[in-house]
Write a protein that binds this DNA or RNA. Structure first.
Length: 281
DNA sequence: CGGTACTCCTGAAGGC
DNA sequence: TGCCTTCAGGAGTACC
């Protein structure tokens, strides 16, 4: 389930492989990912030159010189494989999209669960079209702050955990980093979002940035080792404080020298939330 | 309109 | 050992 840090790392990996390259051939091995490919999908890509690689929230945005942008979401099992030369590529199960580039490079999209998707949008309409038009600020950008978060949560009665998953409030956060940030900020995931004080929003905004930046830093280094094998991205599970760690001691409580408190699991809106009953208030 | 439940998909993991 | 069930999750949609 790539969230903002994983998608950003993939973008950084794609940038040198794609920039100024033309797409020689686009091969689709499936009629659809989450959504069907548009009939002219491959034809629109073929012959286009890639002018930039961007990211907004969990979405990759590959700009082309034909006035289209390839919008690419990795769902939860999407993996991107990059090969410098054609003869290095061995097809694997769930390789749905294959891009052959000028210069011999290749980019492959593999997605076992097909929750991801690719679509093409006109460049000038991109910022207004769903989901970008209603998307909240980039958490690592200048428009995100404690004040901005406080304002965005002002009318939200929904639990703060659910609010953090709402891409309209802040972009790019998924289940893992929502849990991690709330633990870091010592805020209980079940609190109504509008009940957070300005100070708590300040703390939470800082925690969100910290958690994402740490994941980015760790991902950058772990990726170098991992991509030698198959080019895909792993998760940075070794650094999770609470996610998928029910029963393990809460690291915040351990840091403070207190008694070890086991991490709890509960379900909110059908999704697992991991938190510490003791320190998250 | 806010909020919840359901839906898509497949592989991993657990139970018997 | 192997089959069956359950679970994981983003985001769109249906529905109250």
């Amino acid at each position: 389930m790539p969230e903002l840090p994983e998608v950003e790392i993939i973008r950084q990996e794609l940038e040198p492989a794609l920039h100024n390259c033309s797409i020689i051939k686009c091969t689709l091995n499936s009629p659809a990912l989450r959504y069907p490919f548009s009939p002219d999908f491959a034809a629109t890509l073929q012959g286009a030159k890639i002018t930039a690689t961007g990211r907004r929230g969990k979405y990759l945005q590959i700009s082309l010189d034909n006035d289209y942008v390839l919008v690419w979401h990795l769902g939860m099992s999407g993996r991107v494989k990059i090969f410098a030369l054609e003869n290095l590529y061995t097809p694997e199960k769930h390789d749905h999209v294959h891009l052959a580039l000028s210069g011999g490079g290749q980019v492959v999209y593999n997605d076992a669960r097909r929750f991801g998707f690719m679509s093409l949008h006109r460049t000038d309409a991109l910022a207004q079209c769903p989901p970008f038009g209603a998307m909240g600020p980039e958490p690592l950008g200048n428009h995100f702050s404690g004040t901005a978060l406080h304002n965005a949560l002002a009318q939200k009665k929904t639990p703060i955990k659910s609010a953090l998953l709402d891409q309209g409030i802040v972009a790019g956060i998924g289940n893992i980093y929502a849990c991690e940030a709330l633990n870091d900020a010592a805020i209980h995931p079940g609190r109504p979002a509008l009940s957070l004080s300005a100070q708590e929003c300040e703390t939470l905004a800082r925690a969100i940035r910290d958690v994402l930046q740490k994941a980015l830093a760790a991902g950058g280094s772990s990726l170098k080792d991992y991509r030698k094998t198959d080019g895909s991205l792993g998760y940075f599970q070794h650094m999770f404080s609470v996610y998928d760690r029910a029963g393990h001691p809460c690291p915040r409580c351990a840091e403070e020298g207190g008694k070890e408190r086991p991490i709890q699991r509960m379900v909110q809106s059908g999704r697992s939330t991991f938190y510490c009953l003791h320190c998250q208030k």
